[in-house]
Each structure stands twice: as C-alpha cells, then as structure tokens.
Nucleic acid binder design. Structure first.
Lengths: 240, 240
DNA sequence: GGTACGCTTTGATCTAGATCAAACAGCCAT
DNA sequence: ATGGCTGTTTGATCTAGATCAAAGCGTACC
C-alpha cells in the first residue's frame, strides 16, 4: 500500500484547477492566476485507497498534498509498536510539514481518498513569495495546534466513555449530513484506529460504544454507520 | 495573582530593545529598525511572579508577550475542575494566539518570569505588513504543533514511569546547565503541575520519581532540584 | 451453499494507576 | 522553639481499563 516514493508523481491525472479553486481552500485560494497555472502544471490529482501511506514517519517527503475527498490520519509509532494517531485531516486540509524535510509522523488515508499532490520545492518557493499563502498555512497550523491541544485534554483527563463520545463528536462535526439536531455519519476509522486515537484498547472502545448505544445516545448500523439522535446529549457526555 | 486585565499595561518598565533583539528571537528579530522602534514605544517589560495568570481561558486578550526569562505553562481546565497542561514555553518563545481574540487556554507563569508585552493591535498590523514576522510566528506554531503531537504520544501510549521520564527529559533539554552527559536543573513545576501535564495523579508522579531515584537514573535534592547523572540512561527509559 | 478470514463484540480475570489516608519535611510567622 | 501551612512521600485498598480468551458477524471467494 505504501506509495511514499518518487514514482508517486508518475501516476494520477493532471489537475484541472478551475474547479480546484473552490476546494483547495488552503493553497490555491491564496495564489494568483499565474501562480496557480504554474502550480497546476506540476501537480497531479490522485486517488488513493484506504490504508495507503503517503508520508512515512522518519522519511523525507518531496511533496505536499491537499485533501480533496476522504480522511487522512496522522500517526506516530514507537519502536516497540505502540501507536498513537495524533490528528485527523479532512478535505480541504493541507497535508505536509512546511520548512522541515523529514517527517516525524506518517500520513495515511483512513478512507478511500482523493488528493492533489504538489512538488515540495515549487510550493516552498511559492510560500516564500506569497504572504497570502504563508498566512493561509499559518492559519491551518494554528487550527491544528488548537485541535491537538484539545485532544491532549481528552487523552490526559477524560474517561474512556468521554473519550469515545469525544471521538464521535469530532467525526460528527467534521463530516457530512446533519439535520437540526440529529446527525448520521460513517466512521472513517476502524475500532483499532479509534483505540489508537484515544489511547485505549479495541475492547474498551467496543464496550463504550455498546454502552452509548444501550443508553440511547447513539445507534449503530453495520459497525461503521452511526446515528446520533440528539447531538446535545452527546455533547453533554463530553465534559463535566 | 490574576493580572489578565487592562491595567496590565500600566505597570512595568519601558523596553530597551537594543538588548532585546538578542533575546526576542521570534518577534523582534524579524522587524526592521523602524518597526522595532515603534513596537518598543508601545511595549513594556514586566516581571511576573510564579502563579501569575497572564491570559485566562475563555477571555479576550489584548496583548501578546515574549518570554524573556522563566517558564510559562499553557493550561486547559474542564468545568468540573479537571485540568491539563497542554504546553510549556521557555524564553524566548512567543505567547499568544494570533488571529483569534478569545483564548481557549490560560497562560500562567510557572516560575518567576520576565516578559515583554506587546499590544495586540499593533503587532497584528505588523504581522500583516511583515512576511518575515509572519514566517517567524508560523515557525513557532509548527514547532509547538510538533511538540504537542509528541506529547499526545506520551499521554496516550506511555506508562506512568515513561511519562515521568519524558517530563524530566523535556525539562532537561529546555533548561540550562549541562555537561557532556550529566545534567542538573530545577524543576519549574510542582508535583501537582507535573501530574496535570502527564495526565496522572500527584501520588503516582511522586512514586515514579522515587522509583527513578532508587534505580539511580536521577538524584533529587530538595524536591525541585534534579540531577541526571547519565542522560542516555534517561532517554532509554522513554521509548521501547 | 459453505468455509475462511478479518473485524467486532462479549466474558473472565488481572493490574497499573487512582483513591483514601496518614505521616513527613521544609518554611514562615508568632 | 513551636505551631500551622503547604507540598511531598509512603502505605493500604479499590477500580477503570488492560489483558486473555472465545464467540459472533459480514463479506468474499470457492
């Protein structure tokens, strides 16, 4: 599944970036027409399957990406195999660590996804030439920092039940169709991945999910599909 | 102790920013002479005591700071009182959240400190006018993001012993005097604060500290002063 | 259909770390 | 020096969540 190598650029379709502009919020929105044209000439759109690792921990990466569709997970693993997901990214987030070549984490598609791949050198140059783009990436970094710190609170101080509720809330608020109060969505993560995101074991995640189901906070259809009848009730489980 | 209010600007000494430039890495290093002169006219240097909260969670803050000396802790608290320290900042770090007025966390001096206080409006203007400064703050945000994610691994997947070792390592590598291998430093945090940083209880922190002492990884003098005879040994405790 | 495989749930038991409770040590004010 | 504080260590016990083990369940392939 690993495609974090140079032939990464050799497959995929050219970017048609008129439509792109709407979706690529973070990068393309900040560029001039001319820059956009140049960037597009050197970039590719690419479909990737769930499980595909586009950046490997400890390796150098020669490209950045923008998520067009799907969910990416950012992951850290220890030498002995213990693993922690340190962030989820959704369309239209930017993926990559500006200014540092070697990645301290891996980026892997959690669901079948579509990304737009930019060569690192070119985008680095554009960042330094375009304060708008710098600002845009700075914004995303700060947003991720806020999210990371919020998650630190979850990891350090919440109970297993609160952790699972927090995860469901995170997914619900970052993914798709919701009516006024009720929400339904597909989990982009397996139980094992949820466990790695919450600092729990698979079994504990499973038990807490059935617990939430039994008290009526969620309904579970076919493992992955979740229905939250009342989001307020879910939110109430998270804090005090 | 709370000074996160408007009269914050009414005490303190004017900034003499010739010396400043050396210390204020993040902000002043990126400014032109003229900008620096203007910024200095509107900024103050200020001594603050351990425990002083310069930004309150949920409140608006009208200033940014640069740490000149001391350690600041960034803290989140839940409605029921559970608390998590989500970051430590050392001189010459920048404190404050650009682009968002309301803070989602509090910033509090962990030790007696000295900071340089900038008015928010002025610095915001300078950020938008000065790509150098934007870049500099972007760099710090990314550095903090890396640190936050590293800590997420610690919170989610390390044992109590590894957590305490991680904290000692963090402090050792961000504070003062070290010889080739051996290192000595003062902890900027109480046991209770360490517990809030590691997602543990005071008692567990204490037990693990004495454990590390008994196996000879550290020596403890007077609660706060730590000696690490062999940093490699400490590092070995952290991962696998 | 069957059966094989991966994911998930459920059950029984164990344990790292929490909680409850008591000493202990340093420090200031009287 | 004595008493009162606050922060820390140490001990005894409890429990949330881990671990170990065994079914379910769904999909996919023969």
């Amino acid at each position: 599944m690993d495609v974090a190598r140079s032939e990464f650029f050799e497959t995929g379709t050219p970017v048609a970036c008129t439509s792109c502009q709407a979706r690529h919020g973070v990068v393309c929105g900040a560029l001039s027409k001319g820059q956009l044209r140049e960037l597009n000439r050197h970039s590719l759109r690419r479909k990737i399957e769930a499980g595909c690792e586009i950046i490997a921990q400890g390796s150098e990466s020669s490209f950045y990406s923008n998520i067009m569709r799907g969910v990416m997970k950012l992951c850290k693993v220890m030498p002995d195999g213990r693993q922690q997901i340190v962030g989820l990214q959704f369309a239209p987030d930017f993926v990559g660590r500006p200014f540092v070549r070697e990645s301290t984490l891996s980026a892997e598609a959690a669901t079948d996804s579509e990304i737009c791949v930019f060569p690192r050198n070119l985008l680095d140059r554009m960042i330094s030439e375009t304060p708008e783009l710098q600002r845009s990436l700075h914004d995303q970094a700060l947003k991720e920092l806020d999210a990371a710190r919020e998650w630190m609170l979850t990891l350090g101080r919440r109970t297993a039940e609160e952790k699972v509720a927090s995860l469901l809330h995170l997914i619900a608020t970052h993914a798709e169709p919701q009516t006024a109060t009720s929400t339904a969505f597909d989990l982009p993560l397996s139980r094992a991945e949820i466990a790695d995101f919450l600092g729990l074991t698979i079994e504990t995640v499973s038990r807490q999910m059935t617990r939430l189901r039994k008290i009526g906070v969620i309904r579970i259809e076919n493992f992955r599909h979740i229905i939250v009848p009342d989001m307020d009730e879910l939110e109430r489980m998270i804090s005090a």
